[in-house]
């Protein structure tokens, strides 16, 4: 059974359709890349999967549980990094991670070890004692990722995880995400195309709320009528030009 299953998912805001009839699934241990121009519906889809927004129509299941009817079961399985990392500027990194760990219902005796583990993974160990508001954008982003990793959730949903990072940090985060494959099921959105080629096995391209391509990265170029050697960038521009 697929870890994430989405069927005919639609989200309408009063007069605007944000996402329109999305159907896709992600197998356990897979990394799916969400691509699309700004406003294509990537964040909306992620917000529905994490239970922050209800769908207007359709069903989303995580680990077999309906997101809307069993929100707690689903939320327990997901680590989520929203577009803007949800940080409290007046907290220290350590205090913040401990708070999120408590929200995720980690047992009190595991808190300390778990905070140290994710801090090590994301390279924020040496800033644990600092106030979040004094961190650089890159470090804030890393703390956001660290927070998502707390408790080793089965599913990670990362909305533009490399946003605001410098090239070296980007490479680190990409390597981190790649290392998570197999143990975690990951959906990651980005508008940096090479990132997808480097980290994901499967790609889903959204444009104006609709799926315009959904395939294995290797097959994508061929299936879209472009030459086999076409780069992802060419495919992306062709598909989202409409």
């Amino acid at each position: 059974m697929a870890m994430i299953e989405v069927q005919h998912l639609t989200k309408r805001y009063r007069d605007r359709v944000a996402i329109d009839d999305l159907t896709f699934s992600v197998e356990e241990g897979e990394i799916l890349g969400f691509l699309g121009p700004n406003g294509a519906g990537k964040s909306t889809t992620m917000k529905i999967l994490t239970g922050f927004l209800p769908p207007s129509e359709g069903v989303a299941r995580v680990g077999g549980f309906d997101v809307f009817t069993h929100p707690l079961e689903v939320k327990r399985r997901i680590g989520y990094l929203p577009e803007a990392p949800p940080l409290y500027p007046d907290m220290t990194v350590h205090g913040y991670l401990k708070f999120v760990a408590a929200l995720k219902r980690l047992p009190a005796r595991e808190l300390k070890g778990e905070v140290e583990r994710v801090a090590g993974l994301t390279g924020v160990t040496h800033v644990l004692g600092r106030l979040i508001q004094n961190l650089s954008k890159g470090y804030k982003q890393r703390v956001g990722i660290a927070q998502a990793l707390l408790g080793s959730p089965q599913v990670l949903i990362l909305d533009e995880p490399t946003e605001g990072l410098d090239p070296a940090q980007r490479a680190e985060v990409r390597a981190l995400i790649k290392s998570l494959a197999g143990k975690h099921t990951v959906i990651l959105s980005t508008h940096i195309l090479p990132e997808v080629t480097m980290t994901c096995e499967k790609v889903l391209i959204l444009n104006q709320g609709r799926i315009v391509a959904y395939d294995d990265l290797r097959k994508l170029a061929g299936s879209q009528g472009t030459s086999e050697s076409a780069s992802l960038e060419e495919v992306f521009i062709k598909l989202t030009a409409a």
Partner: peptide
């Protein structure tokens, strides 16, 4: 305003 409400609402919290 801080967008941390999203954190509370997507954590396994009632």
């Amino acid at each position: 305003r801080n967008k941390t409400f999203e954190l509370l609402m997507t954590a396994p919290v009632r």
